[in-house]
Nucleic acid binder design. Structure first.
Lengths: 195, 195
DNA sequence: GCGTTATTTCGATACATTTCTAATTAGTAT
DNA sequence: ATACTAATTAGAAATGTATCGAAATAACGC
C-alpha cells in the first residue's frame, strides 16, 4: 500500500486505450493505415500492396472498422475503404497528449514524495516527522488523505484516531490544522478541502 | 501514382514504431505503467497488484527496460522499478508529432521495388540503369508501365519519346524489346502484353 | 436464370506471446 | 556455512493472433 496513489484512468478508459494500442501494434494494420492515408482503396488493392490474401485484409479492416478507424462504401461489387483521419487524429491526440499519458507522466513525478514516505512511514505508521519543512508537508499530506471528509470529531476522538499513526497525536493535530487540512470550531474538528 | 515518395519513415523507424505500440498493447504492461506512474515499485508488489506471478512481471519489466521505459535500482534483495517518465514523454511526443504521423502514412508504400525506384529514378527520369539484373527489371517494368498500349511507333518516334526518361534511348529500347514489353516488326514498335 | 468478380465468413493451421512451475542466482542475516 | 527472501532464468503449457484455403454471399452483366 503505497499511499498517494490515485486512480488515473477509469476501467473504461483503460480498455479503450488497450484496444487502441492493439490495433496499431500489428504490422499489416499499420501498413493499411499508411496506404489508406494516401487515398481510399478496396480490399483487393490492399491485398496486393501488402502481399497477403484478401481474407486477411478483410479481417484486419473489420477490426479497424469496429473502432471507427475506417469507413466503407460499396461500389459495384467492391468495397472501398477510407481512413477516418479525423478519428485517427482524435484518437492520438486524446489518448496520448491529453487525458491519459500526460496524466500518467504527471503523476509519476510524485515519486520524489514516495521516497520521503518510504523513509518516514513504515507499515502505516509515521515513524517520526522530518525536520525539513518540505518533507514534513509530504507526510502531513499523506496523513490528511486518510482522514474521512464526512466526519466530525471531538478533540478527544480525533486525537485517539491519530494515535494509530503516531503516539504524538498533539503534534500531528497541530500540523494538520496549521496546514489547513483540518478546521476546528467550538471544539469540533473536521476535514477541510485543500488539494 | 508515381510510387516514388519523398519524405518517408525508414524501415527502422517503422519497426521502432511497431515495437513501441507492441509494448503498450498488452494488458499487464499497460497496468504496470499505470502502477509505476503512481510511484516506484518492486517486482513482488507489482505481481500482487496485477495478480500474476513474479516471473511474469519480471519478464514484462525486462522488455520495458530494454526500450528504456523503466529503470531499476537494487535495494537489498529487491529490485525497485521506476517509470522513466521523460522517456515516455519523449516517445509519445515523437510518435505523434504531426510530421511523423504523416511520414508513417507514406512509409508503408515502400515495397522492395519502390526502394529500387527511389534510388534509380528521380523526377520521372531514369538516372542510370542498375547493373544487377533484378533491379534492372524493376526499372524496365516501371518504364513499360508508362508506354501506352494503343499506340504504334516508328523507331524514330519511339526513340525520341524514350529520351524523356534517359538520353541513352538505344539501351532502354533494347531492354524493353528483350524483356518482351515491346515488339518490333518491319520497323514498327508496339507495346505488348506481359504481366 | 447463369456465370463472373470482389468480398466476407468459416474453420484449420501455424506462429507468437503470455503465463506458469521449477530451478537458479543474488543478497542478508543467523 | 546455512537458511531465508526476492528476483531472474529456462522451459513447458496455455492462450492468443495472423494467415490462409475453401465455401458462402452479394452485386453485376448477360
Amino acid at each position: 500500500m503505497t499511499g498517494i496513489s490515485k486512480e488515473v484512468l477509469s476501467e473504461e478508459q483503460f480498455d479503450q486505450l488497450l484496444r487502441f494500442f492493439q490495433v496499431f501494434s500489428n504490422e499489416s494494420r499499420l501498413k493499411i493505415i499508411g496506404h489508406l492515408a494516401n487515398g481510399e482503396k478496396n480490399v483487393g488493392e490492399l491485398a496486393g500492396l501488402l502481399r497477403v490474401k484478401e481474407p486477411t485484409v478483410s479481417h484486419h479492416l473489420a477490426e479497424m472498422k469496429a473502432i471507427g478507424l475506417v469507413n466503407v462504401r460499396a461500389e459495384g461489387t467492391m468495397r472501398i475503404y477510407r481512413l477516418n483521419s479525423r478519428a485517427l487524429e482524435a484518437m492520438s491526440k486524446d489518448i496520448f497528449a491529453h487525458s491519459n499519458l500526460a496524466a500518467l507522466v504527471k503523476t509519476s513525478e510524485l515519486s520524489e514524495d514516495e521516497k520521503v514516505l518510504r523513509t518516514w512511514v513504515k507499515d502505516g505508521r509515521i515513524i517520526d516527522l522530518p525536520a525539513q519543512e518540505k518533507k514534513k508537508q509530504v507526510i502531513i499530506h499523506w496523513l490528511a488523505d486518510r482522514i474521512p471528509h464526512d466526519r466530525r470529531w471531538t478533540e478527544r476522538e480525533f486525537s485517539e484516531w491519530l494515535t494509530q499513526f503516531n503516539e504524538d497525536y498533539a503534534t500531528l493535530r497541530r500540523y494538520l490544522v496549521d496546514s489547513g487540512y483540518m478546521t476546528r470550531e467550538k471544539g469540533i474538528y473536521w476535514r477541510t478541502l485543500k488539494a
